[in-house]
Design a protein around this nucleic acid. Structure first.
Length: 295
DNA sequence: AGTTGTCAAGCTAGT
DNA sequence: ACTAGCTTGACAACT
């Protein structure tokens, strides 16, 4: 079981999410920003190893504009050595990696254009993980997409469009239950038709479910991960008190986390903490695990 | 140095 | 009709 956090580390200097405005695009600018992003990514991985945080989500803008027509750089070639070095470092320390294409990636969209751009974005992120030399256990997690007033038709469209994706992409793509539209049950239905693994998100489950027991839902999603996929990943968070439903908490609720671990103790999986204070909560989470003798 | 409007991209629900 | 929220700030122009 590995503990991780998404995209941002506030303890190190620099960021791996640097970008710039489309208006100011130039190949030189892109190279300059990617250079810094990769340097920061290496520093984050280093920090994570030192603190035994062995799961990390890389931000979508690690290569800004990579799926935009304006991008005229063969970045995987240009940065080949650096990417290989980072990937080797990741593999050497058995670090799990994921990426989470953002809300603009909708592969069940009614617009063929949006689907096409979504696939281009997925292909870029997939290529990034490939360029690091990571195996199929490094995943790209997305939501099912929009509902457009007809859930059955939208699920059918997801399944259809999924089938036409490259094998390369299918190897990495996983879906996550969301908090308003597509529940674990909906994801399981899609899994039946596609074999796509499901990331369980406990907070989303609390927001949207089919009145099934949480542990049962968790078990069902865990069983969708096959040998090649690695052990299941989950997203873990809790509701921010007194905030709108679905808001992620600012810092980890250690009692809730301890209870969650006790409940799921018979399973091996990697936990992504979707919590606003990032690595700080990840470090607290490790302390909780220690106190439960899980480390 | 600090503040603020804006940034490639979609969709839904709440106001 | 508009906007917050989503995994989440960062850029760039202004004071």
């Amino acid at each position: 079981m590995r503990i991780g956090y998404p995209c941002i580390n506030n303890s190190i200097d620099g960021t791996s999410n640097g970008t710039f405005r489309l208006k100011s695009y130039s190949q030189e600018r892109l190279i300059e920003v990617v250079e810094k992003n990769l340097e920061a990514l290496m520093a984050i991985i280093q920090f994570n190893i030192e603190h035994d945080l062995l799961f990390f989500r890389i931000g979508s803008s690690i290569i800004p504009f990579a799926s935009h027509p304006v991008c005229d750089l063969d970045w995987s070639k240009h940065f080949a050595r650096k990417l290989t070095n980072i990937g080797d470092f990741i593999k050497k320390h058995n670090i799990r990696i994921s990426m989470h294409p953002d809300q603009f990636v909708v592969i069940n969209s009614l617009s063929a254009d949006i689907v096409q751009r979504s696939v281009a974005e997925l292909e870029y992120q997939c290529k990034f993980l490939n360029s690091l030399g990571l195996e199929a256990d490094a995943k790209l997690q997305i939501h099912v997409g929009g509902m457009y007033g007809d859930k059955q038709a939208s699920i059918a469209r997801f399944i259809e469009n999924y089938k036409s994706l490259s094998e390369n992409l299918k190897k990495r793509l996983v879906i996550e239950n969301d908090d308003r539209l597509y529940s674990v049950q909906d994801c399981l239905y899609i899994h039946e038709a596609t074999n796509i693994p499901i990331i369980f998100d406990n907070l989303h489950f609390d927001c949207l479910n089919n009145h099934e027991n949480m542990l049962d839902a968790f078990k069902l999603t865990a069983s969708t991960w096959k040998e090649n996929d690695g052990i299941p990943m989950i997203d873990y968070s809790t509701q921010e008190p007194d905030a709108r439903v679905g808001n992620h908490t600012k810092t980890i609720d250690e009692q809730h986390f301890a209870n969650f671990l006790k409940l799921t103790k018979d399973f091996d999986f990697d936990i992504m903490l979707e919590i606003k204070d990032k690595e700080l909560s990840a470090l607290k989470a490790r302390e909780v695990m220690k106190s439960l003798n899980l480390l």
